[in-house]
Design a protein around this nucleic acid. Structure first.
Lengths: 206, 206
DNA sequence: TATTACAGACCAACCAGTCGGTCTATAACA
DNA sequence: TGTTATAGACCGACTGGTTGGTCTGTAATA
C-alpha cells in the first residue's frame, strides 16, 4: 500500500475522532497531511469510502480476534475471558478507529453500511453463542436472558471509547481487569465463579 | 409554549434520531411538520440551538431523577437501585432524545457543549458518590476501582440506545431487571448481595 | 514513451440563515 | 359597536459561503 494512502488515513482518524466526520472537510484532511485534493482522490473514490475503510479495518480486526478466541479455547467461560481481554486491549491499538466506529456509523452510505452491519452482527452472534453455550453448560446463570446479557456486556466494553484516554490515569489492563471482574461476578454461577477464581486466569493475570 | 415549537422539536427528534443531525436539513424539518423557514427561525435562533434544547431537556430530566433517588433513599445500595431503574425507564419516555444525546453531542457548539457537559459531569458525580459510599459502608466490593466501575455501569445502561426498540421483543422493565441483576451480582459484597436478594427489592419487583 | 502519482484551480450543488412582507388577534379609541 | 393601531406568528424567495468532487496539467518512474 502506498505511503500517502496511509498518511491520509492516519490524518483523517485524528481529525474525525476529534471533530466528527461532518466537522472535517476533505480540505482539512489534505492540509493536515500536506497533500492535495488530487492526492486524496487518487487513493479514495470519495470521502465516504474513506469512512468505510476506517470502519472495515477495525471491525475486521476485532472479528478475527473473536474467532481466534473461540478456536483457542474450548470452554465458553475461557472463550469469553479471551474475547473480553482482546476487545478491551484493542483500545491501545485502534483508539481512534473505535471512536469513529461508534460515533459515525450512522453516516456510512447505504452499500457500505450493509457490509459493516454484517460484520457487526457477526461479532454479536459469536459473543451470543459463547454466552448461550455457557448457560447450557451451567457456567453462566440461566436466569439471565441471553440477548440482554449480550448487549449489556457489549455496552460496558464499547462505552470505553467515550472516556478512555491512552495517557489517562487508568491503564487499559486495569480497565479490562475490572470489566472482567464485574462481568464474571455478575454472570457466572457460584460453582463456575469459584472455579474461575481458583484457576490461573484470575483477575491479576489477565 | 407555542404549539409549533413543540411540533418542530418532535419532528426534528424523529428525523435526527433516524438520519443524524447532519443528515437532516432545516428544510427537511419544516417540511416534515408542515411549516416554513420563517416559522422555524421564529422559535429557534439556529439549528444548533434546537440541538441544544433537545440535549438539555433530556439531561435535565435525568439529573432530576438522580437527585430524587438520592434524596428518597438513605443507603447507597437502594439509591443505586433507584437510579438504575429510573435511568433505564427513561427509554420509554425519551427514546429519541437519548439517541440524539448519545450520537450527536460532538456537534454541539462550544457554548452549548459546556452547559451540557456540566450537567453530564454532575450526573456522573452523583453516581460515583453513591458507589464510593457503598464501598465505604461495605456494601460494594472494595477491590473495584470506583471510576472504572462507574463508567462500566454507565456504559452498560447508556448503550441501550443502540439496540432498544419500543416495539421490540424485550420490555424495558425486563431489560432494567437484567441490568440490575448483573450489576448487583457483579458489585455487591456477599453479605450485601444476600441481604438485597432477601429484601423486598428483589429482581422480580423492580 | 507510457503509466502512475500527485498538484491545485475550478465548478455545481447544497444549505443555514436572512429579510421583506402577510395574516391574525387583541387592545385602544371614538 | 365599528374602526384603527400594534404586536406577534409565520411565510418563502433569496443569498453567500461552504464543500465534495472534477479536470487539466505536470513530475516522476519504469
Amino acid at each position: 500500500m502506498s505511503d500517502l494512502r496511509e498518511k491520509i488515513i492516519k490524518s483523517s482518524l485524528q481529525l474525525f475522532s476529534d471533530k466528527g466526520f461532518h466537522g472535517v472537510t476533505v480540505n482539512d484532511i489534505v492540509n493536515h497531511c500536506d497533500t492535495s485534493k488530487g492526492g486524496f482522490y487518487h487513493h479514495f473514490k470519495s470521502k465516504d469510502e474513506l469512512l468505510y475503510v476506517i470502519h472495515d479495518t477495525f471491525i475486521s480486526y476485532v472479528l478475527n480476534e473473536a474467532n481466534q478466541a473461540k478456536k483457542c479455547y474450548d470452554r465458553p467461560i475461557f472463550q469469553l475471558h479471551e474475547m473480553l481481554k482482546a476487545l478491551v486491549r484493542v483500545y491501545d491499538l485502534y483508539n481512534e478507529h473505535i471512536v469513529v466506529f461508534n460515533q459515525e456509523n450512522k453516516y456510512l452510505k447505504e452499500n457500505y453500511e450493509i457490509l459493516i452491519q454484517k460484520k457487526r452482527d457477526n461479532y454479536k452472534e459469536i459473543l451470543q453463542e459463547v454466552i448461550k453455550q455457557g448457560q447450557e453448560l451451567g457456567e453462566i446463570r440461566n436466569e439471565l436472558p441471553t440477548t440482554i446479557t449480550n448487549m449489556a456486556i457489549l455496552g460496558m466494553v464499547n462505552w470505553t471509547y467515550q472516556w478512555y484516554k491512552k495517557d489517562g490515569p487508568k491503564t487499559i489492563d486495569e480497565i479490562a481487569s475490572t470489566y472482567i471482574d464485574i462481568i464474571f461476578s455478575g454472570l457466572l454461577t457460584t460453582e463456575a465463579l469459584e472455579e474461575y477464581r481458583a484457576s490461573k486466569l484470575s483477575m491479576t493475570d489477565i
